[in-house]
């Protein structure tokens, strides 16, 4: 059904290229997150899809319909049936909440559909308010309802939660994800917050330097990123030099099982997430003696930086997350590794 397909998309602002061959596919009903650092071109990608910015090369199709192939005149934004929620909501300040939601609807459908949507976003009593009388979270909900009102084939959200405070952000993003799934809306959400992307997306596309470097499910992306940059973008990463030999990585922490078969012996780097490192005060098989160089209490856990007592040191201290504070009295500490090492 409604598939968004972006093929080899290029776009530029004046002479400076922003998108350098983006490939992205979003299946019907999916919520896709485009994750990337500021300035990687993710907002521009959204604006090209929405029709606010022309593509200079490549193709953009929605449900088989060509929207922009950089040769013909692109389909204007108002004829794409693509909803858009910008970062700060951009509610029309001169219209009430009800008029905002009804903006894109034919006059006769307005009343019924607006009250449906007000119920859907849980603000049935605010129809006659003006945008400046709403809180930030309410404004974003109304902006979402306004975009959903004409039942668009695709919804685009440009960092919709970044202007909200942390607690509200977490609640609202869950609510929005639930709402989008319940309405079966295909959506693309752009964010620089990896936690947000991992929490709500069906599929995450990592964008770097105007290109999608990897697109996968959140779980796969977190544990099996294709390169070191992606690994670090998604969360803290211990990157260790290793010698790979079929299914085993030989590292300074001893031999570790690999997440996949590596084939003939090669030198490479493997990824271990902090929670894979466990600390104990007793020695044993496959344990390596370590020393704590820094420990920070973070509420839920402790972030501990470690160096090896013997052998080749990794470039960066190893990072582990532990439930209890590491002993500070110079007692010997030992490290074990759980799970697989993933070559990047």
């Amino acid at each position: 059904m409604t598939d968004l397909t972006v093929t080899d998309l290029h776009a530029a602002h004046g002479r400076s290229p922003i998108l350098n061959g983006v490939d992205l596919t979003v299946a019907h009903g999916q919520l896709a997150c485009v994750l990337g650092p500021s300035g990687c071109g993710k907002s521009t990608l959204l604006r090209v899809i929405a029709g606010f910015h022309p593509a200079s090369r490549g193709q953009l199709t929605l449900d088989g319909r060509v929207l922009d192939d950089a040769t013909r005149r692109p389909v204007p934004a108002e004829r794409r049936r693509i909803g858009y929620v910008p970062q700060d909501g951009a509610l029309f300040p001169h219209l009430t909440v009800a008029a905002n939601i009804g903006f894109g609807l034919p006059r006769r459908e307005r009343r019924k559909r607006v009250s449906e949507l007000l119920d859907l976003i849980g603000l049935p009593d605010l129809a006659e308010r003006h945008p400046h009388q709403l809180s930030g979270g309410q404004q974003q909900r109304v902006a979402l309802a306004r975009a959903l009102a004409p039942q668009p084939e695709l919804l685009l959200l440009d960092e919709p939660f970044s202007a909200l405070d942390t607690a509200l952000r977490a609640t609202l993003r869950t609510d929005v994800a639930v709402l989008l799934r319940s309405t079966g809306t295909t959506a693309v959400l752009v964010t620089h917050d990896q936690e947000e992307a991992l929490a709500i997306a069906d599929t995450v596309a990592v964008m770097q330097g105007g290109r999608i470097t990897q697109q996968a499910t959140p779980h796969r992306l977190y544990h099996q990123p294709t390169d070191a940059d992606t690994a670090r973008l998604l969360g803290e990463a211990n990157l260790l030099p290793a010698r790979l030999d079929t299914t085993v990585a030989h590292t300074a922490l001893g031999p570790l099982p690999l997440s996949g078969s590596a084939g003939p012996a090669t030198d490479a780097t493997v990824l271990l997430r902090p929670h894979q490192l466990r600390l104990s005060t007793t020695d044993g098989p496959d344990r390596v003696r370590v020393r704590v160089v820094r420990s920070v209490f973070r509420g839920a856990d402790h972030r501990v930086e470690l160096v090896l007592e013997a052998g080749a040191q990794p470039l960066q201290p190893l990072v582990a997350h532990t439930d209890t504070a590491p002993p500070s009295d110079g007692q010997p500490l030992y490290l074990t590794v759980t799970g697989h090492a993933h070559p990047v």
């Binding site: 951009a90 029309f92 001169h94 975009a147």
Partner: peptide, 25 residues
Amino acid sequence: TACEEVSRSLGRGPLATLWRVTLPL
């Protein structure tokens, strides 16, 4: 121009957007 862009994405053409969004703002 976010308001104008939203208006376009809701199916209103350039003239309707001028009249219904830009002018009131």
